[in-house]
Design a protein around this nucleic acid. Structure first.
Length: 604
RNA sequence: GGGGAGUUAGUUCAGUUGGUUAGAACGCCGGCCUGUCACGCCGGAGGCCACGGGUUCAAGUCCCGUACUCCUCGCCA
C-alpha cells in the first residue's frame, strides 16, 4: 500500500543532517537522485538536497520500493522513508553523513527527469554558456548552492548590524530622472508622457542625500543599481549595493562604521577576525606605487617612478625614447622582478605580448648583472650614470629583471598595474583566483576633486559634483582646480574596489564654486540637480556616506572566480540572459504605445 | 568600438599531410549483478562537424564572412 508522501508523511530531516547519533530512527527524506549504483540486489542512491548527500539503500525484502528504485535515474525528484542504520566498516569518510545510510522501506517518485544537458556535479563540467542557459540546473550544483546561502547570510548580517547601529532601511525609486555624467543609464520610456523617459537609477546617490536633509540621520539599503556599460568579470549591468549615508559625521566616523560591518561579515561568514582600523593610503601614493587606486597589497612588486630621473639626465641619459616621453608630459615607470623569483627568458618574452594586449607599444627590460650592467635590454645606449641611478632607485641587485613602461601617464599606470598583478600570479605570489588566505583591506583617500579631460580640455568631477573638497583647498577651486583634494574614499580588498563614497558638499556657496570650476552654468545646474540644490538651502546637515559592492563582497567571501557565480541569474558578456533570451523583440503595437520607433529592423 | 581565444554526439573532448564508414569517456536505452560510493560486465541508440559563402576531384580539416560565448583594452563620476 502506497505511503502518502508530503500530505501525511512529512520530511523529518535534510540530507546533510543524519549522523551515527540517529541510528535506529525512522526518517523521511526528500531530494534529488545525485548518483545511483544498481547492483541488482541492492540499489544505492545518493540523495541530494541543499544541505548535503545521504546514501539510501533499497533491498529486495521491500519489493515495491526495490522495484521502483531500479527505474530511478539522475535528477529524479523523490521521497523516501526508512530506517537509519550504521554503515560500520563501509562508512564513507568523504561524506558528512557517511557514517550512516537509510534502509528504505518506501519510495515515491515526485517527478522524473529527462537526461540533463550537463551533469549536476560540484565540479564544473560544461561551458558557461550552457550553465547560464540552464541556470536552474546549474544552481543545483553544490558550490553555487553554498554561494547563494552565503549571500543570504550576508544580507541578514548586514541588516542586523545596520539596524543595531541605528540605521533605517529606506527605499528609493529605481525609475528616476536622467542626470548626465557618470555611467550610462538604462532608459524607460513613459507611456503616459509621450517622448519622455525615466532613467533606471545607477545608484540611490541623490535620494539618500535627501534622506539626510529630511532628518533620517542614518540610512542604509541593500539595493539594485543599473548601469548600461560594458560588462566585465566583476561588472554586471544590474548589481547590488549596500548603500549607506550618515549625518553629522566625519570621514573617520564612516570608516569605523564600515570597518565594523566588514569585520562582522568576515567573522561570521569565514570565522576570520580582520584587524581594524584598516590601513590608509593616499591616492597619489597608490597611483605611483601600484598604478591604480585599488592596489592589491598581498605582494610587493611596487612601481618606481623614474620620470624625474630621466628629466635630470636629459639627452645625456642615452635613452631617447624615454627622454622624449618625459618631454611630452609623459611618465616613466619601472618594476623589479627579483632574482629570488626569476622568470625564464621565454616567460619574459611573453610579458611583451601581455602588455601589448593591454595597449602598450612594447616592454623595455633589463637584466642586471654582478657589475650592475644590463643584459637582455634594448636600452643599449644608456649612459652608465643613468643606469646606476636607475639601479639605485629600483634597489636592483644582480639577477633582478627591471621592466619599464613610458609614455602617456594614464596608459603607463594602467599597463604597469596590470603587469604587476600578472607577474605576481606568474611568480605564484598570489593565486589565480581567491584570497590565498590573505585579506589586505585598505582605504584609499584624498584623491583630486577634478580630473582633466584631455579630449574636451575641461575639468570634470572625478567622483560626483557633490563631493566636499578639503577646506584648505577651497581657495584653489577657481585658480588651480587640479590641486584640490577631496573627502572621497574607496575601500579596497586584494585589488578589488569593494566600496566607495564621500563626505558630501552641503555648503551652497562652495557648491556654486565647484560648478563654476566645472564650467556648469547656473541654469544648467538647476536643470540637472535643481531639486538637490534647493534641498541644500533648507538647513541640510553635514553628511556623507558610502556604498559597498555586495556582489564583489560575495565573490571575495566565497572565493568565486566571477561575479556571475554569486548572482543567481546573471547576464552574459554582451548583457543577454541566455536562459530567457532577454533582451528580446517587442511588438510594433507595444512600441507605439510608448511612443518609440525602432531604427533597427527586426532580426531574422 | 579595438585586440585575442573558442564553437565536432545530450555533455566533455580526440580527429594525422585535405582522402572515402567522424571516434572515446560520461550520460541515455536494454540485459546481468546484494555492499557500492567515479560500482562492475555485456549489448544498443545517438552527428546539418555553429551558420553562410569560397578553394578543391575531394573540406570537420584550407580561405573569407556572420552569429554566439569567454578573456582583454576603451568605457564604468
Amino acid at each position: 500500500m502506497a505511503v502518502p508522501f508530503i500530505s501525511e508523511v512529512k520530511r523529518t530531516h535534510t540530507c546533510g543532517q543524519l549522523t551515527a547519533a540517529n541510528v535506529g530512527e525512522e526518517v523521511v527524506l526528500f531530494g534529488w537522485v545525485h548518483n545511483r549504483r544498481d547492483l541488482g540486489g541492492a540499489v544505492f542512491i545518493d540523495l541530494r538536497d541543499r544541505d548535503g548527500l545521504t546514501q539510501v539503500v533499497f533491498e529486495p525484502n521491500h519489493a515495491e520500493a526495490h522495484e521502483t528504485a531500479g527505474h530511478l535515474r539522475l535528477e529524479y525528484c523523490i521521497g523516501i522513508k526508512g530506517k537509519v542504520v550504521s554503515r560500520g566498516r563501509n562508512a564513507n569518510p568523504n561524506l558528512k553523513t557517511g557514517e550512516i545510510e537509510i534502509k528504505a522501506t518506501d519510495l515515491t517518485i515526485f517527478n522524473r527527469s529527462e537526461p540533463t544537458p550537463f551533469l549536476v556535479e560540484d565540479k564544473v563540467s560544461t561551458s558557461e554558456e550552457k550553465r547560464l542557459a540552464y541556470r536552474y540546473l546549474d544552481l543545483r550544483r553544490g558550490p553555487l548552492q553554498h554561494t547563494l546561502m552565503t549571500r543570504s547570510k550576508m544580507n541578514a548580517l548586514t541588516r542586523s548590524y545596520m539596524v543595531g547601529n541605528g540605521f533605517m532601511e529606506l527605499e528609493t525609486p529605481f525609475m528616476g530622472k536622467y542626470t548626465p555624467g557618470g555611467a550610462r543609464n538604462f532608459l524607460v520610456p513613459s507611456r503616459i508622457n509621450p517622448g519622455k523617459f525615466y532613467a533606471l537609477a545607477e545608484s540611490p546617490q541623490l535620494y539618500k542625500q535627501l534622506f539626510m536633509v529630511a532628518g533620517f540621520d542614518r540610512y542604509f539599503q541593500i539595493v539594485k543599481c543599473f548601469r548600461d556599460e560594458d560588462l566585465r568579470v566583476d561588472r554586471q549591468p544590474e548589481f547590488t549595493q549596500i548603500d549607506v549615508e550618515m549625518s553629522f559625521v566625519t570621514q573617520d566616523d564612516i570608516f569605523t562604521m564600515i570597518e565594523g560591518l566588514l569585520k562582522k561579515l568576515w567573522g561570521e561568514v569565514l570565522g576570520i577576525d580582520i584587524p581594524t582600523p584598516f590601513m590608509r593610503m593616499d591616492f597619489y601614493e597608490s597611483m605611483a606605487k601600484y598604478g591604480n587606486d585599488k592596489p592589491d597589497l598581498r605582494f610587493g612588486l611596487e612601481h618606481v617612478v623614474l620620470t624625474d630621473l630621466i628629466r635630470e639626465h636629459g639627452e645625456a641619459g642615452g635613452v631617447p625614447m624615454m627622454w622624449e616621453a618625459v618631454q611630452q608630459k609623459g611618465i616613466v615607470k619601472a618594476m623589479v622582478v627579483p632574482a629570488e623569483k626569476p622568470l625564464s627568458r621565454a616567460e619574459s618574452d611573453k610579458l611583451e605580448d601581455f602588455v601589448k594586449q593591454a595597449g602598450a607599444k612594447g616592454l623595455a627590460r633589463a637584466k642586471v648583472n654582478e657589475a650592475g650592467e644590463w643584459t637582455q635590454s634594448p636600452l643599449k645606449t644608456i649612459s652608465p650614470a643613468l643606469r646606476q641611478a636607475i639601479n639605485a632607485a629600483c634597489n636592483a641587485k644582480a639577477g633582478d629583471l627591471i621592466l619599464f613602461q613610458f609614455g602617456r601617464e594614464s596608459l603607463v599606470h594602467t599597463v604597469m598595474a596590470n603587469l604587476r598583478v600578472h607577474v605576481a600570479k606568474k611568480l605564484g605570489l598570489i593565486p589565480e583566483y581567491g584570497s590565498g588566505g590573505q585579506w589586505k583591506f585598505l582605504w584609499v583617500v584624498n584623491p583630486p576633486l577634478f580630473e582633466y579631460d584631455e579630449e574636451t580640455n575641461t575639468w570634470a568631477a572625478a567622483h560626483h559634483a557633490f563631493t566636499r573638497p578639503h577646506d584648505e583647498d577651497v581657495q584653489y577651486l577657481l585658480t588651480d582646480p587640479g590641486r584640490v583634494k577631496c573627502h572621497r574614499y574607496d575601500v579596497v580588498l586584494n585589488g578589488f574596489e569593494i566600496g566607495g563614497g564621500s563626505i558630501r558638499l552641503h555648503d551652497p556657496k562652495v557648491q556654486a564654486e565647484v560648478f563654476k570650476a566645472l564650467g556648469i552654468q547656473d541654469e544648467e545646474a538647476r536643470a540637472k540637480f535643481g531639486f538637490l540644490l534647493d534641498a541644500l538651502k533648507y538647513g541640510a546637515p553635514p553628511h556623507g556616506g558610502l556604498a559597498l559592492g555586495m556582489d564583489r563582497l560575495a565573490m571575495l567571501l566565497t572565493g568565486a572566480e566571477s561575479l556571475r557565480d554569486v548572482i543567481p541569474f546573471p547576464k552574459s558578456k554582451t548583457g543577454t540572459d541566455l536562459m530567457t533570451g532577454a533582451p528580446g523583440d517587442v511588438d510594433e503595437k507595444q512600441l507605439r504605445e510608448i511612443h518609440v520607433r525602432s531604427v533597427t529592423p527586426p532580426q531574422k
